[in-house]
Computed example of a mutant assay.
Amino acid sequence: MKLYYAPGACSLAAHIILNEINVDFDLVRVDLKTHLTEKGVDYYQINPKGYVPALEINPGLILTEIVAILPFLAQHDPKQDLIPPSGFGRAKVLEWLGYLNSELHDAYAVFFQGELDEAAKKKGYAEIDRLFSYIDAAIAKAEHEYLVDDNFGPADAYLFVLTNWSKTIGHDLTPYSNVMALRKKVRQRQSVEIALRDEGLIK
């Protein structure tokens, strides 16, 4: 498999899951400003949508959209604990991925679309805080270690990546102690350490 990524983008979640399932894969860095790969290939020829991630499963067989890629990869887990195979558990994974993608990801995206004045920043922070208030409360009420069950999974990887963006935009996550605790737990995984290092986000 081949993952087209940009450092620190949501593609990082797919990178983490690829490390978890311990398969051979190649990484191809994409410049999202020029839409060229590291070898100068027009990325639009690979993914006409123009954004990452894109997962090349076999030559010419491309899957896009993080909410599709993460479950696809997780189901290849040889230990069978990254995602439930069916039923309510799997539906809960998809529920979290949908929420993170359509709500939290979009709330952060406002800050990456150009300079914001102070009023727009305040409004943007307020929306992110509203969403994290829900997530923090949901984690507090849960009787399991991670978002869906006692096993780390794709929703946890995605949430971790999104929380990284708070530092980039100057947003304070410290009021959300349950989110911070989950984030810390995910950060300690070897798959995360390797992905961060390979994308040049840590040394």
Rank of each mutant, 00 (worst) to 15 (best):
residue 29 R to V: 07
residue 136 D to G: 02
residue 46 I to G: 08
residue 119 A to E: 14
residue 189 R to E: 01
residue 153 G to W: 05
residue 40 G to V: 13
residue 92 K to G: 07
residue 54 A to Q: 03
residue 141 K to M: 00
residue 51 Y to T: 13
residue 200 G to E: 10
residue 31 D to N: 15
residue 172 D to W: 03
residue 163 T to P: 01
residue 20 E to Q: 13
residue 57 I to A: 01
residue 131 L to N: 03
residue 94 L to C: 09
residue 28 V to Q: 13
residue 192 V to W: 03
residue 180 M to C: 14
residue 122 K to H: 02
residue 122 K to Q: 15
residue 58 N to K: 15
residue 150 D to V: 01
residue 110 V to G: 06
residue 109 A to M: 11
residue 170 G to Q: 04
residue 194 I to P: 00
residue 10 C to Q: 06
residue 32 L to E: 12
residue 91 A to S: 14
residue 107 A to P: 03
residue 99 Y to F: 15
residue 157 A to Y: 04
residue 142 A to I: 00
residue 123 K to Q: 14
residue 42 D to F: 06
residue 2 K to F: 03
residue 202 I to A: 10
residue 175 P to R: 01
residue 152 F to K: 02
residue 43 Y to C: 05
residue 194 I to K: 13
residue 102 S to M: 07
residue 62 I to Q: 07
residue 115 E to Y: 07
residue 29 R to E: 15
residue 180 M to Q: 08
residue 162 L to H: 02
residue 123 K to A: 15
residue 112 F to I: 04
residue 143 E to V: 01
residue 18 L to M: 14
residue 56 E to W: 05
residue 121 K to H: 12
residue 27 L to E: 12
residue 46 I to L: 02
residue 129 D to M: 01
residue 10 C to A: 08
residue 21 I to A: 10
residue 54 A to S: 11
residue 191 S to K: 04
residue 26 D to L: 05
residue 75 Q to P: 01
residue 39 K to E: 14
residue 124 G to I: 12
residue 202 I to C: 09
residue 86 S to A: 15
residue 5 Y to G: 01
residue 109 A to L: 14
residue 127 E to W: 02
residue 11 S to D: 06
residue 123 K to L: 11
residue 2 K to H: 03
residue 183 R to D: 12
residue 17 I to P: 09
residue 138 A to M: 08
residue 109 A to K: 15
residue 143 E to W: 00
residue 27 L to H: 06
residue 91 A to M: 14
residue 121 K to T: 07
residue 4 Y to A: 05
residue 111 F to Y: 13
residue 76 H to I: 00
residue 46 I to A: 04
residue 167 K to T: 10
residue 88 F to C: 05
residue 175 P to G: 12
residue 62 I to A: 04
residue 184 K to E: 15
residue 23 V to H: 03
residue 79 K to P: 02
residue 128 I to A: 08
residue 49 K to T: 11
residue 184 K to H: 05
residue 155 A to C: 11
residue 67 V to P: 01
residue 151 N to E: 07
residue 145 E to D: 11
residue 1 M to Q: 04
residue 62 I to M: 13
residue 112 F to V: 10
residue 52 V to Q: 04
residue 77 D to S: 11
residue 48 P to K: 00
residue 102 S to T: 14
residue 26 D to G: 15
residue 19 N to T: 06
residue 112 F to G: 08
residue 1 M to S: 10
residue 103 E to S: 10
residue 64 T to C: 10
residue 188 Q to A: 15
residue 44 Y to E: 01
residue 35 H to E: 09
residue 145 E to F: 00
residue 149 D to G: 14
residue 150 D to S: 13
residue 24 D to W: 03
residue 78 P to E: 12
residue 94 L to V: 14
residue 37 T to M: 06
residue 172 D to T: 11
residue 66 I to F: 02
residue 90 R to T: 06
residue 142 A to C: 05
residue 173 L to V: 13
residue 128 I to W: 08
residue 42 D to S: 14
residue 122 K to T: 14
residue 122 K to W: 00
residue 79 K to E: 15
residue 143 E to G: 15
residue 167 K to W: 01
residue 95 E to C: 02
residue 126 A to W: 00
residue 183 R to W: 04
residue 91 A to P: 07
residue 68 A to E: 05
residue 146 Y to P: 03
residue 127 E to C: 04
residue 29 R to A: 09
residue 4 Y to I: 09
residue 184 K to R: 07
residue 179 V to P: 04
residue 165 W to Y: 00
residue 197 R to T: 06
residue 29 R to Q: 15
residue 26 D to T: 12
residue 114 G to A: 11
residue 25 F to T: 08
residue 11 S to K: 01
residue 4 Y to H: 09
residue 104 L to E: 06
residue 88 F to Y: 15
residue 175 P to Q: 01
residue 6 A to E: 12
